[in-house]
Simulated scan of single mutants.
Amino acid sequence: MSPDQPAEQMSVAELAAYIDHSVLKPEFTVQDIAREVSNGVHFGCRTVCINPTAIETAAPLCEGTETGLCVVVDFPFGLSSTSSRLAQTRDVLAPGVTEVDIVANYGWLRSGRVDRVEQDLRAVAEVCHEAGVELKVILETDALTVDEVRAGAEAAIAAGADFIKTSTGFYTGTTQHEQTGASESMIATMLSVAAGRCKVKGSGSIRDRGHFLRLIDAGIDRMGIGYRSTPVVLGVEQDETPAGAGY
């Protein structure tokens, strides 16, 4: 989306509305999850992005706040069968869940099986939309050529995805690009392909405030920010007043 004002002039509350506060570390304890979800709520982030088993911890902490629950499905590989992905999706559609992030099968994209990707994603999108939940499709762009990213984005849009997204943040293979994750060039590519037909989420390698602000000015709709980086990109201290209280 095109912002109404330069990102540098936005309040903390306006900036926080761009953030899915990532709480996805598999080694997190229940106490770690509760702490970081509370921080996401404290800063007024649009959502906290969590694994399915964290719903029972996160939901009560987000209830009655402006921060929703974004739950990842078939993460981080995206290699389950469609029937399994549908079961996983239905399983996370709990009260308070506003968005689902799912990984496209990027092995299929690299194999040219774009039709299979579209068919698989359409089934998931239908389940989400029946529940009034938005679907973000992760393309794992570091593993793909630009042409494959474009093909994957078109498949996701045709399938009914509400967002196309760059990365899981967990990919450790050889990148196909000079820059990783939500680089400005990759976001420009995805915005160009989306062309207003769906929204664009960047994730991966957004760790400094300058990068964060430039992506907003470029027209990005949402960003997945690691739990340590949220206060950095917002330009606040960890213990400052919550974003909804005067920022």
Rank of each mutant, 00 (worst) to 15 (best):
M1D: 07
P6V: 04
E14P: 02
L15G: 08
L15N: 04
A17Q: 09
A17F: 03
I19M: 02
D20H: 10
H21L: 09
L24M: 09
E27Y: 13
F28S: 11
T29D: 10
T29H: 02
V30A: 15
V30I: 13
A34L: 00
E36N: 12
E36T: 11
H42F: 03
H42D: 01
F43C: 01
F43S: 00
G44S: 03
G44V: 02
C45Y: 02
C49Y: 02
C49H: 01
N51L: 15
P52N: 12
T53A: 11
A54L: 05
T57I: 15
P60Y: 07
L61E: 10
V71R: 06
D74V: 06
F75P: 04
F75N: 13
F75L: 11
P76A: 10
F77S: 01
G78L: 10
G78Y: 08
G78P: 04
G78A: 01
G78D: 11
S81N: 01
S84Q: 08
R85P: 07
Q88G: 04
T89N: 05
T89S: 03
D91S: 15
V92Q: 09
G96F: 08
G96I: 00
T98P: 03
V100W: 06
D101G: 12
V103H: 03
A104D: 05
A104S: 15
Y106V: 05
Y106Q: 14
W108S: 08
S111G: 08
R113W: 07
V114E: 09
D115M: 06
D115C: 05
R116I: 07
R116N: 13
V117Y: 04
E118C: 13
V124E: 08
A125R: 06
H129D: 06
E130V: 05
G132C: 07
V133S: 06
E134R: 14
E134H: 01
I138G: 13
T141M: 04
T145Y: 06
E148L: 13
E148Y: 05
A151I: 09
A161T: 11
I164S: 12
Y171H: 09
G173E: 00
T175P: 09
H177E: 07
Q179M: 02
Q179V: 05
G181F: 15
G181Q: 01
E184N: 05
T189N: 14
M190Y: 07
L191C: 08
V193G: 06
A195K: 10
C198E: 10
C198V: 01
C198F: 03
K199E: 07
V200D: 11
S205Y: 13
I206M: 09
I206Q: 07
F212P: 11
R214Y: 03
R214F: 11
I216N: 12
A218D: 06
A218C: 04
G219S: 02
M223S: 00
G224H: 10
I225V: 15
Y227F: 15
R228F: 14
V232L: 13
V233K: 14
E237F: 00
E237K: 14
Q238H: 12
D239K: 12
G244W: 01
G244E: 13
A245S: 10
G246P: 06
Y247R: 14
